[in-house]
Amino acid sequence: MDCQRAETYVLHQLQHLSPTLYYHGLHHTLDVVAQAESLADAEGITDAQERALLRTAAFFHDTGFLTTYQGHEEAGCALAHQVLPAMDYAPAQIERICELIMATQMPQAPGDSHLAQILCDADLDYLGRPDFLPISNTLLQELQARDKMQDLRAWQELQVKFLSEHRYWTRTALQRREAGKQAHLAAARALLNS
């Protein structure tokens, strides 16, 4: 696996994302990669190949936005199947990467796969962080740019629903982020009721 080449490829490609992907931009991918690494450390993932597959999946998880908004996970998998064989990824490794990417589809479904749980938690790590509000506002902007959000009340309702239904999968994410997420949920409910 030439992970460095795969990462360089993704970084180059993501320069071509739509400028209206205010949330799902390169900055989000880099954040997910960093959070996946941090969670893998804390969750005791030491196997080099497992970590490489997780890292590659984190880089590729939103590459589907290069071609589509709906169904971007499948498009990201198609891209992985297209380019990773030339970078010395075996078919079984590419399948595993695609399983991780598909687990991040909403609603998240990582099953019993520890790596998929880590990637799902990394993808939505911000829900429990102090920078939740500015990051969630970029998602609002992105949805508004696509006429997918009528007004601020609908947005607040969506936030409450999403935060209520979301769950963290790993012990580490629960310890690090659950309390913060619950605080954001309480604030969102209060705003909706005011």
Rank of each mutant, 00 (worst) to 15 (best):
D2G: 09
R5L: 15
A6Y: 10
A6G: 02
E7C: 11
T8Q: 15
V10W: 13
H12R: 13
H12G: 14
L14A: 04
Q15P: 03
H16M: 07
L17P: 01
L17Q: 05
L17R: 13
S18G: 08
S18K: 11
T20V: 14
Y22W: 12
G25D: 15
H27R: 10
L30N: 10
D31T: 14
D31A: 15
D31K: 12
V32E: 10
A34Q: 04
Q35M: 11
E37N: 09
S38H: 12
L39H: 07
L39S: 06
A40S: 09
D41R: 12
A42F: 05
I45N: 05
I45Q: 14
D47Q: 12
A48N: 05
A48T: 13
E50M: 01
L54H: 10
L54R: 02
A57E: 11
T63W: 09
T67C: 07
Y69S: 00
G71V: 07
H72C: 09
E74C: 08
A75N: 02
G76V: 12
A78Y: 05
H81C: 15
V83P: 05
A86L: 08
A86T: 07
Y89C: 02
A90M: 09
A92T: 05
Q93M: 06
Q93H: 11
R96K: 15
L100R: 07
M102Q: 15
M102N: 13
A103P: 06
T104Y: 13
P110R: 12
S113N: 13
H114K: 15
H114G: 04
L115M: 01
L115R: 07
Q117R: 12
C120S: 14
C120H: 05
D121T: 01
D121F: 06
A122E: 00
D123P: 09
D123K: 12
D125N: 11
P130Y: 09
F132A: 05
F132M: 11
F132W: 02
P134G: 08
P134A: 04
S136F: 09
L139D: 10
Q141V: 02
Q144R: 14
A145M: 12
K148V: 00
D151Q: 04
R153C: 02
R153F: 03
L158P: 00
Q159L: 13
K161C: 08
F162Q: 10
F162E: 10
L163R: 09
E165A: 06
H166R: 14
H166K: 11
Y168M: 00
Y168H: 04
R171I: 05
R171P: 01
R171V: 06
A173D: 02
A173M: 04
L174A: 09
Q175M: 10
R177H: 10
A179S: 09
G180E: 01
K181T: 06
Q182H: 02
A183K: 12
H184S: 08
H184M: 01
A188W: 03
L191R: 14
L192P: 01
N193Q: 15
